[in-house]
């Protein structure tokens, strides 16, 4: 609690999987999400490694069993040619945009640090990503695609949406997760249904953890 952010000790939204909070279509959808193929189908191995390196900086995660395979979701999205429902005129279709951006980012990395993106350290990766966000990268590999637009529309959208669609992320922020047929009863300030995450108030971490094991 040093940073003052809410904590939900021992809360795992997947504990609710077999409760009345989840219906069959939800179980199917989440099961498929958890069983995502971790190997790339659209990106090459090399591109995929670079994508993973980008994901590590955009949504830093601790190594462990709960690690969200973000890059795999992004690759899957490209394979299925999923779309948000619009594309900015300055951007090519998603697949082409990612191929081009990864190549350009490597070119920028080599130019700035004499090593491809996957081989530079976190601080340098952040430098490159920040410059991409600000539109300061100019390598010809970008072609007519604006790096800042790509960053806003793909780096931030594709990667972040993949992470926050994952139960691990839900548990982290104390989100109740799927809710059908059972919704919620207690809606007022400071009110919690027994099947919601319990926030640990200072000195009551054990109490919250106990509640969270019984959602």
């Amino acid at each position: 609690m040093t940073d003052g952010l809410p904590r939900y000790p021992d809360y795992d939204v997947l504990r609710k999987r077999n409760t009345v909070s989840w219906n069959d279509p939800t179980r199917t959808a989440i099961d498929r999400r958890l069983a995502v193929d971790r190997d790339p189908h659209t990106l090459t191995e090399g591109e995929f490694a670079t994508l993973q390196a980008i994901c590590d900086r955009v949504v830093p995660q601790e190594q462990g069993p709960d690690l969200v395979p973000i890059a795999a979701y992004v690759d899957q999205e490209l394979t299925l040619d999923l779309s948000l429902g619009y594309r900015y005129a300055g951007l090519p279709p998603a697949k082409e945009a990612w191929h081009r951006a990864i190549a350009a980012l490597d070119a920028e990395s080599v130019k700035a640090f004499d090593a491809p993106f996957v081989a530079v350290d976190a601080a340098r990766r952040d430098t490159l990503l920040t410059r991409m966000q600000k539109g300061e990268l100019k390598d010809p590999a970008w072609g007519d695609m604006a790096p800042d637009l790509f960053f806003k529309q793909h780096v931030l959208v594709d990667i972040v949406a993949a992470y926050y669609a994952h139960p691990t992320a839900w548990s982290r922020i104390g989100y109740g997760g799927p809710a059908s047929p059972r919704g919620y009863v207690r809606m007022g300030f400071g009110m919690r249904d027994p099947w919601e995450a319990a926030e640990a108030h200072p000195g009551e971490e054990a109490k919250a953890a106990r509640k969270n094991r019984n959602v």
Partner: peptide, 14 residues
């Protein structure tokens, strides 16, 4: 109610 008696933790109250 949605979920009927199976969803009693909600529906007994709502």
């Amino acid at each position: 109610m949605m979920g009927g008696w199976r969803n009693w933790t909600q529906n007994l109250l709502d």
